[in-house]
Structures are given as structure tokens and as C-alpha cells.
């Protein structure tokens, strides 16, 4: 029986993970797990270390302590491209599209790992290579269609409005066929309508079999789509559970939601 088959635990598990930058302890003794098929939200006040956690999971930073287990295998020391090859794909808080390239070319980047052509086939433009390029374009157009981006496929990506750029980045990440999709503030900069559409899209993506871990400030998104929430503050976990129970946790209210409720009153 292969290891893949025998795996029964959570898809992703952070085990006592910590990282220091110089003397600064950015994340400390962090434990949480992401079950297959769930949408997990990672929340916390600004500077709590959320993006740092994402950077550690995706191999951008190496954790100084603890283990990051992907299907029981420690991926903490892997470089980002190998983490991606495991099926863990991410978006960025500040959109990172390839400027000067079209939307389609950006989404094609997501298909990098699904592309088979060797470098010399690229140079010689062999018949197999040309067939593959045609297939790639078709697959990417289908993804663009799904996210209502087909009309702008040939536009330069970075000249589009902010909300559209966010969707292009999502399309690019989906093109890589993630098993775990990591979204870093996917609703940042979106208007109400766009953020509502995002809710639907996130659920659709989950229903297509993708597990999702997201950082988000927009409570509308967090409370509506997540199955489970992990709250961190000053790099440590302060609460974990279902959205409703976390929402009523006094420690969380004090650290994080408190300010939101003030706003609600005002």
C-alpha cells in the first residue's frame, strides 16, 4: 500500500512551529491542522504573523522550530517550487502578476507543472510541443471562462482594475491544480459585490475538491465561508474552533473582534 493511500490524518499539520528574525520571535509554538475538504480561516490583528505562517508553509521562509507536515511528511525545509509540486499553491497579499504579460500568459504560468515539453522541444517547436501548447491554451481559457475572465484574456494583466487582477491571480493559482489553496487576503481591495462573488467562488472551489486555507480581514468572508477558524496574536494561537464559537470567545473579542464591534456600534 502506498503512503498516499495509507494517509488518513489531516492534510496539513503545523506542529509546534516557530520562526525568529534576528531577535524577533514572529511565530511561536503554533499548532493547527487543516482537514481535507475544509475551508480554514487564519485570522488575527495586523502584525500577528499570519503572512509569516503562509510564507513558512509555502517554503518562502524556513521555520526555525517545529515541523510542517503535509500528509505526514515534513515539508518545512523544502524550497517553494517543491512545496508547489506537492500541490500547495498560494496567492499573495499584494498581487504579484507578471507585468507586461497578458492575462492568458499569466494563467499559463499556473500550468507550468502540468506542462511536459522538454526545453529542447520548446526550442525546436516539435509537433508534440505545438499540440501541447494548443491544449494548454484551451485549458487556461476554460479556467478563465469559469472566473468570467475570458473577455480580458488578451489584455495586459497589470493594466486591469484591482478586483479583476485579484481574480486573475486566483485563476493562475487554480490553473496549477492545487490540492491545498492558500489565499492571502483574497478580499482586500474588493467592493461589496466583488466580495460577495468571492464567497461563492471560494465555496465552488472547495466543492470541486480543493482544500482552502485563507487569511482575511473581511469578517463577512471569514464568517460566511470558513468551516474552522484559527486565531493568532503576537505569533501565538489564542483560539481555534468553528466560526460561531470563535466569535464568542472572550479572548478573541479582546484581541481582535473587539475593535470590529466598536465599529459596529458606531
Amino acid at each position: 500500500m502506498s503512503q498516499e493511500m495509507s494517509h488518513t490524518g489531516p492534510l496539513l499539520k503545523l506542529d509546534n512551529v516557530g520562526i525568529s528574525f534576528g531577535g524577533l520571535r514572529a511565530v511561536d509554538q503554533l499548532d493547527f491542522a487543516v482537514e481535507k475538504g475544509h475551508i480554514v480561516g487564519l485570522i488575527g490583528p495586523n502584525g500577528a504573523g499570519k503572512t509569516t505562517v503562509f510564507n513558512m508553509i509555502t517554503g518562502v521562509y524556513k521555520p526555525t522550530d517545529g515541523a510542517i507536515l503535509w500528509k505526514d511528511r515534513d515539508i518545512g525545509a523544502l524550497p517553494p517550487y517543491k512545496v508547489a509540486q506537492c500541490g500547495i499553491l498560494r496567492t499573495f497579499q499584494t498581487i504579484r502578476l507578471f507585468s507586461g504579460m497578458t492575462v492568458l500568459e499569466n494563467v499559463l504560468a499556473g500550468q507550468h507543472m502540468q506542462t511536459r515539453q522538454a526545453w529542447w522541444a520548446s526550442l525546436l517547436s516539435t509537433p508534440g510541443q505545438r499540440r501541447e501548447e494548443r491544449d494548454l491554451r484551451e485549458r487556461c481559457m476554460a479556467i478563465l471562462d469559469r472566473l468570467n475572465l475570458a473577455d480580458v484574456a488578451h489584455e495586459p494583466a497589470t493594466s486591469l482594475p484591482y478586483g479583476v487582477q485579484r481574480r486573475v491571480e486566483l485563476a493562475r493559482t487554480l490553473a496549477a491544480s492545487p490540492e491545498l489553496l492558500i489565499l492571502d487576503e483574497p478580499a482586500a481591495g474588493l467592493n461589496d459585490q466583488e466580495s460577495a462573488e468571492l464567497n461563492t467562488q471560494i465555496r465552488e472551489i472547495r466543492d470541486s475538491g480543493v482544500t482552502i486555507l485563507l487569511v482575511e480581514h473581511d469578517m463577512n468572508v471569514v464568517m460566511n465561508v470558513t468551516d474552522r477558524i484559527v486565531v493568532i496574536n503576537f505569533g501565538r494561537k489564542i483560539a481555534e474552533g468553528e466560526p460561531l464559537s470563535v466569535r464568542n470567545d472572550p479572548q478573541v473579542i479582546e484581541a481582535y473582534l473587539g475593535s470590529d464591534e466598536d465599529e459596529d456600534v458606531a
Binding site: L89, F92, F98, A109, H112
Partner: peptide
């Protein structure tokens, strides 16, 4: 071109830079 425009984004998509 991906590497030229944004190496980090490329590597997180599985490119061995």
C-alpha cells in the same frame, strides 16, 4: 519571462528558478 518579472511568484507556481 516569469523569472524576469517576478521570481518569487514563479517559484510558488512550481518553477525551479
Amino acid at each position: 519571462r516569469y523569472l524576469k518579472e517576478d521570481e518569487l511568484a514563479a517559484t510558488t507556481l512550481g518553477v525551479n528558478a
